[in-house]
Simulated assay, not measured.
Amino acid sequence: MTTSPRTERRSALPLPLADQTVFSFRFTPSPRGARLARRLASCQMDAWGWRYGTPAHDSVELIVGELAANAVTHGRVPGRDAELRLSREDGGHVRIEVSDARGERLPEARDAGSEEDGGRGLLLVAALAEEWGTAPRPGAPGKTVWAVVSAAPVGG
C-alpha cells in the first residue's frame, strides 16, 4: 500500500539552509531537546559556511549547548517548549537566543572559585561571546538569554 502525497507527514524540524539568515526551532524542555538544539545549531553554522572545527562554529555550538541545558534545567515549565533562534548578522556576527517560560529565574554566573555546584557554564558563555544578557521573552511569558559571537566572514 502506498500513501498519497496528501497524507504524508512532513517533518516538523526546520532544515538548516545556507540562504536563510534566521534559524528558529522550538524544542522540548528535556535533555534530549537540548541536545537536538545544539546539534541543529551546529548543522546551521555549517550550512552558513562556518565549518566544523572553526572558532565561530565551535563557540556557537558550545554556547547553544550551555544555554539550552540551562533552559531545560532551570527554565522548564511542563507543557511549554523552549526555543532556539540563530541570526546571521551583518559584520560577521551570529546572535544566539534561547528562550524558556520561566521569567522569574534569571541566569546567575558564579565565580570560578565558588564552592557551590553549577553556575560555571555561564563563565564559558561570557568567555566565548562578545556580549551576552537576558531580556523578557517577546510575546510570551518567560525570558530570552542571548549571546553574540564574532564570526570571521566565510571565505575570509
Rank of each mutant, 00 (worst) to 15 (best):
T3F: 06
T3N: 06
T3C: 05
R6T: 13
R10S: 08
R10T: 06
S11G: 07
A12Q: 14
P16N: 03
P16T: 07
D19K: 02
Q20K: 06
V22K: 02
T28M: 13
P29K: 04
P29W: 13
P29I: 02
P29S: 14
S30M: 07
S30T: 15
G33R: 10
A34V: 00
R35E: 12
A37Y: 09
R38G: 00
A41G: 15
A41T: 11
C43G: 10
D46L: 05
A47I: 04
W48A: 06
G49Y: 00
G49A: 02
W50I: 00
R51S: 04
G53Q: 11
A56C: 15
A56R: 12
H57G: 10
S59C: 14
E66K: 02
A71G: 04
T73F: 05
G75D: 04
V77F: 10
R80C: 03
E83S: 12
R85N: 01
S87L: 06
S87V: 08
R88S: 07
G91C: 00
G92W: 12
H93R: 14
V94I: 12
I96S: 15
S99D: 14
D100H: 12
A101K: 02
R102E: 14
G103D: 00
L106T: 04
L106M: 13
A109W: 11
R110H: 02
E115C: 01
D117S: 15
G121L: 10
G121E: 14
L123C: 05
L124G: 05
A126R: 14
W132E: 00
W132C: 15
A135F: 03
P136M: 00
P136V: 02
P138Y: 03
G139P: 06
A140K: 14
A140C: 02
G142E: 08
V145Y: 03
A147P: 15
V149G: 13
S150C: 02
P153T: 10
P153G: 02
V154H: 03
V154R: 09
G155R: 09
G155L: 01
